[in-house]
Design a protein around this nucleic acid. Structure first.
Lengths: 202, 202
DNA sequence: ACTTATCGCTACAGTTGTGTATCTTACTCC
DNA sequence: GGAGTAAGATACACAACTGTAGCGATAAGT
């Protein structure tokens, strides 16, 4: 903490929101403490207790502040480019500390059921839709067959990105996103041009 | 702890392995303590310290004991049935506490980098291959075009199952696994029979 | 049965975090 | 520039966990 003018109100809250997200990254969900967060934010524990009862509440408040995310609509025109763009937006979103916080809570659902339940509420309102937005749009336009856009297909891109994150621990590079679109999403939609092998078997 | 004959050696270690996995489920990775594990196992803390230096070591030891998993080869004959079976095996594996432990460590990579690194070592030797085994087998047989089995395709099934687990918090039912195969994997491999919509767009 | 390794128990000082109370300091607004 | 409000500092009793030490008690091997 740099010694500046004394913070209060919204500015202070914002600083504490940052602090709890940083703390989460460093110590993990289970070791979040009012003490640690206060220390990191350079303030007194009493200040935290005036607003939140425990680290979980503080964390939820930090997550809630970042929502609803303004999702720039990735619908420009061409299907393939739109899909790639939507995955890039997903990665961008996931890069944000808030996204990691969500991930951390969901991963330890069993250990923190109340926290997970509260989180689900936060999310039901503003769903995360990335490739789904693009697919729905193009299905309505007729670019792709409406019947081929199932819930599973809508989840495909997100699933591959999440899996990569879990396995490797880093975000996927652009090349990987392109491969997801070319090797998986487009073929599933019926576009066989981008993958090896003809439509019917050899 | 039921008061039975005093455990020692391998039996004791096994009990402690169970205890640490149960404890992980209940309190999460960050709140694992020697104290809590010892209490749950009905033994003294000193007994734990005689073998492991901290809860992380104990947990790794518990995970290591469960490996290498004997993966029953899900290759019976027909591609579709084999794929479904391989996903069922994946779900079965993921149901085991050990799998949840792995998941917990990977989810908090940033907070526990040493633990994650040690885990990666454990895994590099015996990789988890479920649908991949089936795909490789059938590619060698010529049932499917070898060129269509890319690393992404091999990961597709696992990714969808993992994503479901994260989003819903429960394991997917059989119906969902069938949909993964019929709506995603088979279409990507070039089999258009199981999904709505013609091969070329309308 | 006798020995030996090891397990369970108790105790201890030290550390960290909790939640509250109290008091001083410094912004903000009129 | 004075009043009111909110932040920061300090102190406290309490609780949980740590890591080590010492001492029976008990299972296993000969």
């Amino acid at each position: 903490m740099v010694a500046g003018p004394r913070r209060r109100g919204a500015a202070l809250v914002k600083a504490l929101h940052s602090a709890v997200l940083e703390e989460l990254d460093e110590v993990g969900l289970g070791r979040l403490t009012m003490d640690g967060i206060a220390r990191r934010a350079g303030t007194a524990r009493t200040t935290l207790y005036r607003r939140w009862a425990n680290p979980g509440e503080l964390l939820l408040s930090a997550i809630g502040e970042a929502y609803p995310v303004e999702e720039p609509s990735p619908v420009a025109g061409e299907l393939r480019a739109d899909l790639i763009r939507s995955l890039e937006l997903l990665v961008e979103w996931a890069r944000h500390p808030t996204a990691r916080a969500v991930q951390a809570i969901l991963a330890e659902r069993r250990a923190h059921p109340e926290l997970a339940a509260r989180l689900d509420e936060l999310f039901d309102a503003s769903g995360r839709r990335f490739t789904a937005t693009v697919l729905d749009h193009h299905a309505r336009l007729g670019t792709i067959a409406p019947g081929s856009v199932t819930p599973l297909v809508e989840n495909l891109g997100e699933a591959m990105v999440v899996k990569h994150w879990i396995d490797v621990g880093r975000e996927p590079d652009r090349e990987y996103l392109v491969q997801i679109v070319d090797q998986l999403i487009l073929p599933v939609l019926g576009d066989r041009s981008a993958v090896a092998g003809p439509c019917a078997g050899p």
